[in-house]
Design a protein around this nucleic acid. Sequence first.
DNA 1: CGCGCCAATTTGTGATCACAAATATCCTTG
DNA 2: CAAGGATATTTGTGATCACAAATTGGCGCG
Lengths: 232, 232
Amino acid sequence: MTVPLASVASDTAATLREQVYESLREALTQGKFAPGQKLTIRSIGNALGVSVMPVREALRRLTAEGAFEMQPNRSVRVPLMTRAKIVELRDIRVALEGLAAERAAEHVTPEKIAELQQLALEIVAARERGDSAIDRIKIREFHFTLYRTSGQTTLVRMIEALWLQTGPYMNLLFPAYVRGRRGEGRRRLIQALQAREGASARREIADDIREALTYVADLADDEGVIGVKAAR
Amino acid sequence: MTVPLASVASDTAATLREQVYESLREALTQGKFAPGQKLTIRSIGNALGVSVMPVREALRRLTAEGAFEMQPNRSVRVPLMTRAKIVELRDIRVALEGLAAERAAEHVTPEKIAELQQLALEIVAARERGDSAIDRIKIREFHFTLYRTSGQTTLVRMIEALWLQTGPYMNLLFPAYVRGRRGEGRRRLIQALQAREGASARREIADDIREALTYVADLADDEGVIGVKAAR
DNA sequence: CGCGCCAATTTGTGATCACAAATATCCTTG
DNA sequence: CAAGGATATTTGTGATCACAAATTGGCGCG
C-alpha cells in the first residue's frame, strides 16, 4: 500500500513523532485519505522515511483525537462519515465554537478586530477569483484567530480536534454552497465583536456552522456514507 | 521516583498499552498524582512491570486527552489546576453535558429511567451513610448512564476526557458541598426525562455542573493553584 | 466452477539497545 | 562558604529484533 504523504523534512517540529503527526494531520485536512481507508504503520513509515516508532506514537495521538479510529483487529483506519455522525459533530461544534466566540467578544482588542477584517477581505477576494484552496485556508485562519482570542486554550484544542474530524468533508461546501455568499455573516460577527456583544457573536458563529454542516449532512441519505472528493 | 500504581494484571484489556492506560486513568481519577508531579516513562514501567513501549503509547494518548501535559523539555507532568482553568472546563462541561442530557431525553426508554432512579437511590443511601467513595462512583455512573442514552458516541468520549481532567478536583466537593443535598436535582432531571422535555433535562444538568464547579473554582484565589486531597 | 483449508506473508505489539538531551552531583575555585 | 563548571546519571527518542495475530494467496476437494 502506498500512502500519499509529503516528506517530513520541511517541518520545524522537534521530534520525528511530531513531524509524522503534522504530516498525517495535513493529509487528513486535505482529504488525501479515503473514508474507511486502512493505514498500516510500516507503510506510513516507509512513505515518510522513518521507522515504526514515531508513527506508532503519532497514530496513538490522532486516534485519541478522533481523527482515526482503531478497529477490533487492532488496525487503524480513517473513520467513515455518516449522516448521524455529521449531525452529532455539527451540534458539538455549534456548542463549543459558539462558546469560544462569546468568550472572544469579551477579550477582543482593536488589533484582533483589524486582523479579522483583513482575513474577511481575503476570503471575499479568493471567493471572487474562484480560488477555493485559498478560500478554505483563510476561513480556517479567520475562525481560529477568533477562537484564540477567547484565551481558552483547552477549548481551542478541542475545537482543533473537531475540525480534524469534519475537515475533509468541508470540501463538499465548494463550490455550490459558498456561491453567492458574500460574507454578510462575518461582517455581522465583526460588528458584534466591536460592540462587545458576546451573545450576538455566538449566534453568528452558531448559525454559520449549523447551516454549513446541515448542508453537508443532507448530501448523504440516512444510512449512507459520505464520500470525499479530492482537494483541488 | 516511585509511582503509586496498582498492578495491571487484573484488567481485561487486550494490550499492555491499554492496561497501562487504564491504570494511569484510575490513578488520576482517584487523585493519586499530585498536580504538577512529573512522571517518567521508566518509573511507570517499573511500577507496572512493563517496558517503556506500552507506557510511551499510553502517555501519548492521555496527553492528547488533556489528562497530562508535555513540557518543553519533553517530560510529562500532571497539569496544574488554576481557577481560570476550572472555570474554562466548567463552561465546556456545561455546554457538552447539557447537550448530552437534551439528546438523552429524546432517546430515553422506561428501562433507562428505572436504571437512573435506582442509581439516584444508591447515591442518597451512600450520602446518608457518609460513604463518599461509593457516592462518587455512583454519581459518575448516573451521569454516564444518562449521557450514553443520548447515543452520541463522540460526545460521550469527549465528556469522558473532560471528567479525566476535572475528576481529581471533584473530591473537593466532599463532604462540605454535598452535605444537605438530597438529590432534588436528580429527581427533577428524571421527571424531565419521563416527560421527554429535553430543555428541562439540559437545564438540570447545566445547573448541577455550574454550581459544583463554581464551588471548586472558589476554593482557589485568582492566581492560585488548587491542591488535591488524597481520595478517601 | 465455487468453497474451504493451509501455508506464506503482512502487520501490530512489546522488549532491548544506542544515542543525545536534560538533569543531578560533585569538585574546584574565588 | 558560595558559585560555577565539569562529570556522572537519568531520561526521552528512535531503530531494530522477535513473536504472535491477522490477512492474503493458492491449492485441493467437493
